[in-house]
């Protein structure tokens, strides 16, 4: 047992939440200018230095954000959200949880037999546009954006006079699952909204991967992607409108991916 200190050292450390954006750089040439620069980007600038290394506050905040991201990685999409948006849920061939999902992307690209049956039973074939939601690498991305983006896409597709298939959710999902879905439902345009891998302290970023008549053997060269969909990136409402527009362009040119790029 260490000896009891004779007197209580008069130290009191009681910190506010450090996640506030303020410069840790001292004596900037243009303080107001520095604030404007920092306001223009979420990137960690204006952080200053101790020799060629980071200031202590900046370094600790970085480490704290890494810790937070690690904690969000293992979450699943809340079933209540899927129920609220009337999405039924199917799974890929991943059955060993998140760890298997991370190490076996091949399984995340294939629908399970149960999933195929359920989709066949519930979804009409050959819609003009089929929407599918996948958790991908971030449940938080789906939760943060789906409520906003889904109605915009549905409404946009319907008001363009196109048929909108019955949307559903795929858990432990990879982008390549689009091929299986394409084979099954044969939509003209397939939209997969999927959680992007989480950044440091940011896990809300959603992507929309899209393809014209996807089928077995297709690769990313036949797909398009709109990424960074979240309030601080491409706003989900705007993204929804853009996705509908892109779906129409795909239909007009009967192509997607590199072929669409060459055609437009």
């Amino acid at each position: 047992m260490p000896e009891q200190p004779a007197t209580d050292p008069q130290v009191s450390i009681d910190l506010p939440d450090p996640a506030l954006k303020r410069p840790t750089l001292s004596h900037p040439a243009d303080p107001a200018g520095l604030h404007a620069l920092m306001a223009a980007t979420p990137a960690r600038i204006g952080v200053g230095r101790a020799g060629p290394r980071y200031t202590t506050a900046a370094q600790l905040l970085f480490q704290a954000d890494h810790a937070m991201t690690q904690d969000t990685l293992l979450r699943e999409v809340a079933p209540s959200l899927l129920a609220e948006l009337a999405l039924f849920s199917v799974a890929t061939q991943v059955c060993g949880g998140k760890q298997e999902y991370l190490l076996r992307p091949d399984l995340g690209r294939k629908l399970s037999e149960n999933a195929k049956e359920e989709i066949r039973a519930r979804c009409p074939q050959r819609p003009a546009v089929q929407l599918v939601v996948g958790d991908g690498l971030s449940a938080a991305a789906v939760e943060a954006n789906l409520r906003q983006i889904l109605p915009v896409i549905r409404h946009g597709v319907l008001s363009a006079g196109l048929s909108f298939g019955v949307p559903f959710f795929v858990s432990h999902c990879r982008v390549g699952v689009m091929n299986d879905i394409g084979e099954l439902l044969q939509p003209d345009v397939l939209i997969l909204l999927i959680g992007e891998r989480p950044g440091l302290g940011r896990a809300e970023s959603l992507s929309a991967y899209m393809a014209w008549r996807p089928q077995a053997g297709d690769t990313d060269a036949q797909r398009d992607v709109l990424c960074n969909i979240f309030a601080g990136g491409t706003n989900p409402l705007e993204a929804g409108a853009y996705i509908v527009q892109l779906a129409q362009t795909m239909r007009a040119h009967q192509a997607s991916g590199v072929a669409l790029k060459l055609a437009t």
Partner: peptide
């Protein structure tokens, strides 16, 4: 060189502006 090694778009972490300066020194 990425601000503090945290790429706010590609969602990955790499080396920073500081790192090359430190390695040079």
């Amino acid at each position: 060189g990425v601000p503090m090694g945290d790429d706010s778009m590609l969602s990955y972490q790499c080396t920073s502006y500081h790192d090359t300066a430190a390695l040079r020194q």
